[in-house]
């Protein structure tokens, strides 16, 4: 029971009747995101990091880079993995312990958007083919849960990647001809090919809304997330919850998601501010 997001009947009816009148509890349009802000480089010890706020939802992502061996079937490719933790500080409905289905789904969708978009140029992570590559761990912690963790986590992941700098390296060869990697003092940004951005919809009754808040999520029948690349191509989808969508609704969602993600991408510079105060109450 602890992991359910319970909304009282009165509140539910209130939200639904507002929607019936074309309004949302926080005054947004149906296809409008909450205010998004990104604070990059919050963690100096990480190779890259970012706090992303979507309204009152806050998540932090950090990138750690380690030297490792590539997978045997992809000797000329680095490794990028994304994880998400729903830590108990973020919400009374989160508990410590091994991840539940919800956390696993969230992590896998964020990972899918990052991986499938091929945003990080994985060849650029190879130092010695088949032997030494960079392994990037993108770990996301949800800090404050007010809905739409999917978009927040995805945005945090890509922001942290954009913020990341990895050490430059030199290949040294010993007398026996063995190659090894020597890390230098200087750092270089990661080579990025794309910036995937996702857009999540909640469906409540007949209404489909962008970026649902926690309360809207609590009563939503179905959820769908689309992640788009810079070239306007879809790189990840995930439908969730027990409700359904019609094909026409899906097509409409794709159109809206394409616009919203483009807007967010074009505003990345504007909404990214390393000096912003991450813990304010602004919504």
């Amino acid at each position: 029971m602890a992991d359910t997001n319970l909304i009282s009947l009165v509140e539910k009816q209130h939200i639904v009747s507002l929607l019936d009148h074309g309004k949302r509890t926080d005054g947004r349009a149906f296809d409008e995101f909450r205010k998004i802000s990104i604070i990059p480089g919050y963690v100096a010890k990480a190779e890259g990091s970012a706090i992303v706020k979507i309204g009152r939802t806050k998540v932090i992502a950090g990138v750690k880079a380690q030297l490792g061996t590539p997978f045997p079937d992809t000797p000329d490719s680095g490794v990028v993995t994304t994880t998400v933790e729903l830590v108990p500080i973020a919400s009374p409905i989160f508990e410590s312990g091994p991840p539940r289905a919800k956390a696993i789904e969230l992590a896998r969708v964020a990972d899918r958007a990052i991986r499938e978009s091929k945003c990080v140029n994985k060849e650029s992570l190879v130092l010695i083919s088949g032997k030494k590559v960079w392994i990037l761990f993108i770990d996301i912690y949800v800090l404050d849960h007010d809905g739409n963790l999917f978009d927040a986590c995805e945005l945090a992941a890509i922001s942290a990647i954009m913020n990341a700098r990895i050490p430059e390296t030199k290949i040294v060869t010993d007398e026996e001809g063995n190659e090894d990697v020597e890390l230098l003092e200087t750092t270089t940004p990661l080579k990025l090919d794309y910036t995937p951005i996702s857009c999540t919809f909640g469906k409540i009754g007949k209404h489909i809304i962008v970026d649902p808040v926690l309360k809207e999520e609590g009563i939503e029948d179905a959820r769908i997330t689309f992640a788009f690349r810079d070239d306007d191509k879809i790189c990840a989808t995930q439908k969730g919850e027990n409700g359904t969508f019609t094909v026409d609704e899906l097509k409409k969602c794709i159109d809206i998601a394409s616009e919203r993600t483009k807007e967010i991408r074009s505003q990345l510079d504007k909404i990214t501010d390393a000096k912003a105060y991450p813990w304010s109450e602004e919504t």
Binding site: E116, C235, K239
Partner: peptide
């Protein structure tokens, strides 16, 4: 659900243009 014409499962990975995606649907 073919009778009610509702989509109950949808995921994607890999790269689709909007046109391809809609064609696929």
């Amino acid at each position: 659900l073919p009778h009610t014409e509702e989509v109950v499962l949808l995921q994607s990975d890999g790269i689709f243009s909007q046109k391809e995606y809609k064609e696929a649907l």
